[in-house]
Structures are given as C-alpha cells and as structure tokens.
Design a protein around this nucleic acid. Structure first.
Lengths: 330, 330
DNA sequence: TCTCCGCTTGACAACGTTGTCAAATTGAAT
DNA sequence: ATTCAATTTGACAACGTTGTCAAGCGGAGA
C-alpha cells in the first residue's frame, strides 16, 4: 500500500502538502493540487484511516450491541436504521450480537471501548427494562427499545400508549363500539402502555372499560386462538379485536375462520408489529401498528453522532410513534 | 483515558514492560507482572487498539458487504454466522448494506480498504452470479451465496444439486413415485441446480423424467397456487410436490386445501429455505430444505482469517449442503 | 572471586497520519 | 526597487503502541 510519503515523492512535494490536499485544506495552489491528485491516482493511494484515527484521537466508529435482534425478523430494522444513519455520517457501525449473555455483553463493551468507538447503542429485541453492562457508560451511550431500571440512561423507545390509543381510535372510527383486546404478558411496557392507550381511546369515545373484553397471553398464536374463541362465545361478543402482536392476530384469524365468521365484516382485527411475512400474507391482509424500529435505530446513531441535538439528560427519553398500516382486516 | 505510559509511571516500570504484560510476552517476573496488573486495574486502563493496529500494520477487522440481506428474514443468518465466527477469532465485523447499488458498493469497498480490513466478504440475498466492485480484490476476499461470472474469485455457495437430490430422495423414500416440481425462475443457479438434483434422484430410482410434472414460476405464493392447481387437475396427478421455496409451498397448501385434498395423505409437499414464519406455522408443518446460510457466513470468515485452510485458488468453490428439516407435510 | 550465560528490563525508533509553527514565495503598495 | 502582508509550503513533533537491540542483573561453574 502506498503511503502519503510515496505520493509526496511521486508528486515532488512535501507529504504535508499531500495531507492538505486529502483533507481539502485551504492554501494549496491549483497546480500543486492537480499534481498531487494525479499522483494519488497513479499510485492508487488510499488514506490509512487507522493512522488518521491514531493521530486525531477520534474514530469514525460507533458500536451497536444487540441481544437477539439479528436472529429475529422484525426488530432487525433497528440495525438497518442504525446502519444507514451511520453510513450517511461516514461512520462505520460495529455490530455485536450477544444473545443477551451478560459476560458476552461485558466483553463486547470492552472490545468496543478498546477500539475507541465514539459511542455505543445498546438495543434489545423487544421493549423492556434492562441492566446494561457497567462499563457501557465509559462511552457516550444510548439504549434502544429498552430503558435502564434506574432510568438515568438516555433511551429511545416506542410510544406504546400512542400505539394502543391509535389502534383503538382506528377501530372506533370504523364504527366499532365493542372492542376487545388480546394483549401480551402483564408487566411489560408494551402490554401496559398499549392497555393504557386502549383505555384512553375508549374514554375519549365515552365508552366504559369492560374487563371481560381484555385478556392477556404470551404473545403466541395459540394465545390469540384461545382467547379469541372465548371472546367470540361471549353473550355479547366484540365486533373488533385489538391484538398485542401479529402472531396473536394470526391465532385470532384461525379462531374466527373456524367459527365461521368473517374478517372484517363480523370481526375487525388489528395487530402490532407489522411482521411482513404474517401481516401481508394473511387473508385478508392484516391491519397492524408498525413499531418504529427503523427510526429508533436511526435516531440512536444521530444522537450519538450529535447530528441531531436531542436532549436526553436526566433520564429523559425519546418516544417514537407507532404507525398504522392499513390493510383489509379492519 | 489512561495510556500505557500512565500505567508504567503508576507501577514504576518502563512502558515497554507494561506492553509485555499486556501481550503476555515472556521474560517478566511475577512480582513485576503483579505490580503492572494492579496499576492497570487502578487506572482502569484499556489498550488502545487503534494505536496497536497502527504499529503492527494489521487490524482485527473484516468487512462484510451485503445487498438486501439485512432486510430479509432468511438469509440474515449469513450475517449471524459471520458475526459469530468473527467473534470467536477476536475480530470485529464491519457490515455494510448496499441494497445492491453499485456506487454504494464501490464506496463501501473503499471505506473498508481505508480501514485496513484483513479481508472482505461479499454476500448476496440469494444465490446468483454477480459482478462485484473492481477494488474488492485489493483485499483478500470471498463471495458468499454468489459467484463471479468469470469464476476466478473464491466463493461459498449452497449445494443446490444436493438439495434437489435429497429433497426428491426424501419423497421417494416415503414411497412416492409420481413427484412433481414447482421450481423458481429458469436460469438461476438455485432453479437449475435443484432441477438437476431432482432428475438425478428420479434416475437413481429408475423413474422417467416427466416434463408435464415440472413447472417454473417466480418464487411467489401465487405461482405455487397456480401451478399446484394445474398439476392436481392432471389425469394422473402427482402424489408429492417439491417446491422451489417455502412461499411456493404456501401457495401449494392453499391450492390443495381448496381442492379438498389433504397434506400429506393425498399430496406430500416439501419446500426450500426453512423460513421459520412460514414453515413452522403452516398446518401441517412444512418439511423443507434449509439452506446453509449460517454456515456460509461462518465459513467465509474462517476462510478470511485463515482459521481453516480452504483451498479456493483457481476458481474453486465451497459448496455447502442443504439440510432436510422434517415436519409433517411429507 | 571472576566469567559467562540467560533472563529481565529499558531506551529508542518506527508505524502513517495531522497539528504547529516557521520559512519561502508571491503580489501589491510604496 | 523596496517593503510588507498574505499566501503557500515544508520541517518537525506528536498520537499510543510494538519491534529491535543493548544494557543490567543474578546465578552457576570455573
């Protein structure tokens, strides 16, 4: 590999002048610049970023630590968003998948710090409270799709309440008055946030909250199937079901079809997650709330690069909105 | 950040001695080593990998350029395999998603070369011929799930023929003698390789190749549906269908159900890809050939790190086997 | 005690780049 | 022609580490 000195010798100038050309510094005459550029071309010279980073004592790297994100289809968009935001800032992302194992996480943080990353984003597969590795805070950091139990770390999460609210408002706007919810497991931010949104939306329409219509499962198809069967057999069954995710919705579809009812005419169904393979392939297509994975990844990197001046001091967090994806099930 | 010199001063030794301790070099007395280790602990010192890389003129980075892999659920395992292989070698992966845009690819290669990567893997979402960016060969490189048209670059690809062969042999072993194939688009390595495997398997069972039973589509659900309908209406319909991928199989399921036939009793169905969300959630579960994505990613990195002495000179390539995932549809 | 050898330690250069500062050159104004 | 300021260029140090080599030290054998 040619170095800056080779270029200088080839162009007949000092290597400092070459440095100036490379970095587009002022005070280089056009003639000299051309000479240098030609030499760079001739020698197929590429600046050695490692050496540059060494001298300037900053790197163009940002770390991204994920738990199982890489393996799952949906939250993978976090990585994509982060990747693309980094790319537009000329930064490279160092992605490490730890499968959530604490020792791996600590090792990953260490590896990133040794490499002098400008910051670290720590992302999880689904929205939850986490205890990130201690050394994480040795670099500027941000939590993505999760938050620290103590709440002092900057975080970017989905606005679950708005999601639940908008989903329910959508069903209301379609004329439904008896709206059920088959939610995920209690205690999770997603479950509780969406539940609150659901209640708020009902309130906004002067509808009473009916406990019989609200059920909690484990985010699986089977839960959706089971609870949908129960709900449909109520004396006064719901005309719409808001599901905690698309897999639950898939189960609801199965139950509704089995009972000989039609979607959306007899029951409208809305999901959460917008998992392409499910939502777009169910018949009818599933209306669902897309979580802002891509945007969360993007915002995290923008925060770390300082491209956007988000104030996340003192436990403040960014809540990004969920987006209604309208298909045929509502 | 503390440097090696700070540690040396704190421990009362020369900074070279600290370097020796860090790198586990011999010729350091235990007493000194302990002193140094304590100083490292005290100052929370972490070696600066950037500086080390600068001095040793190698880096612990390998680049991974992908087209749309990140966005798609299935071939994402390539990244995972690469990631984990890199991790076990203490190497960090620099992943760039280019969406297949040539200018982005060239820029990505440049960015990686500037960062002095030890090698570059270039992976595609599905098995095909590619024309990778010219500068790719400025570093050790390998193609993953693709190959160069001219054939001179090292490549790791799935063994499509073995896949088609094993899939068909599996159906034969289940007693089927009239086996159809709904394949992908002609001209693609996957399509042609699996077709050849299918023919070989028939031959191995002394069965004639019947053109009427072999169909080509575009890898979509609709193609599977359409061709399955045609096949089932033949005077002598097949008792088993080998599908070019799981989406096609999904369409076949729909057609078979609609015609009132049962899987696997009336028709056995086998797919390709093992897309969890489809294969595991269809009823009955879909038997399918899993492509060796994870292994391809892993092998690519092992090749680049030299952890495994694969000889890929002169256009030789590694073909990794597809794996039968048995579920209930056969 | 002296010599020699092997182990331990340290001084210094080097990696390829950018920052600092001074020297050289140019051009305008006198 | 001379001066002065502004522009252009280059010499050198510095970043934090590892490689090279020489010096110091301790112990065994004479």
């Amino acid at each position: 590999m040619a170095t800056i000195k080779d270029v200088a010798a080839h162009a007949g100038v000092s290597f400092k002048t070459v440095s100036r050309v490379i970095n587009r510094h002022p005070h280089v005459t056009d003639a000299v610049r051309q000479k240098v550029l030609r030499a760079i071309e001739d020698l197929d010279y590429r600046p050695n970023i490692v050496a540059r980073n060494m001298r300037t004592r900053k790197t163009e790297y940002i770390g991204l630590i994920t738990d199982q994100i890489m393996t799952t289809p949906f939250s993978g968009a976090i990585i994509k968003g982060a990747q693309e935001a980094a790319w537009t800032s000329g930064i490279m992302l160092l992605t490490v998948n730890t499968d959530g194992q604490p020792e791996l996480e600590a090792a990953a943080v260490n590896m990133l710090l040794e490499r002098q990353v400008a910051g670290i984003a720590y992302a999880t597969m689904f929205h939850k409270a986490v205890a990130p590795p201690a050394k994480l805070t040795d670099a500027p950091c941000i939590l993505v799709d999760c938050f620290s139990a103590s709440g002092e770390l900057p975080a970017i999460v989905p606005d679950e309440m708005q999601g639940g609210y908008d989903a329910t408002r959508h069903l209301l706007s379609r004329g439904h008055r008896r709206i059920a919810m088959i939610n995920g497991k209690r205690g999770y931010p997603g479950t509780e946030g969406r539940l609150n949104g659901y209640r708020k939306a009902l309130e906004s329409a002067d509808l009473a909250y009916d406990e019989a219509l609200v059920r909690f499962g484990d985010w699986w198809q089977e839960d959706g199937y089971h609870h949908a069967c129960c709900l449909m057999k109520l004396p006064d069954p719901p005309t719409a079901i808001c599901c905690g995710n698309d897999r639950i919705a898939m189960g609801v579809f199965a139950a509704v079809h089995e009972l000989g009812a039609a979607i959306p005419d007899d029951v409208a169904v809305i999901g959460f997650d917008n998992m392409e393979v499910i939502a777009a392939h169910l018949r009818p297509g599933l209306t669902t709330m897309a979580l802002p994975y891509y945007e969360m990844g993007q915002r995290a990197i923008e925060y770390l690069t300082g491209d956007r001046c988000d104030d996340l001091q003192n436990g403040r967090r960014i809540e990004l909105p969920c987006l209604l994806i309208q298909r045929e099930s509502t």
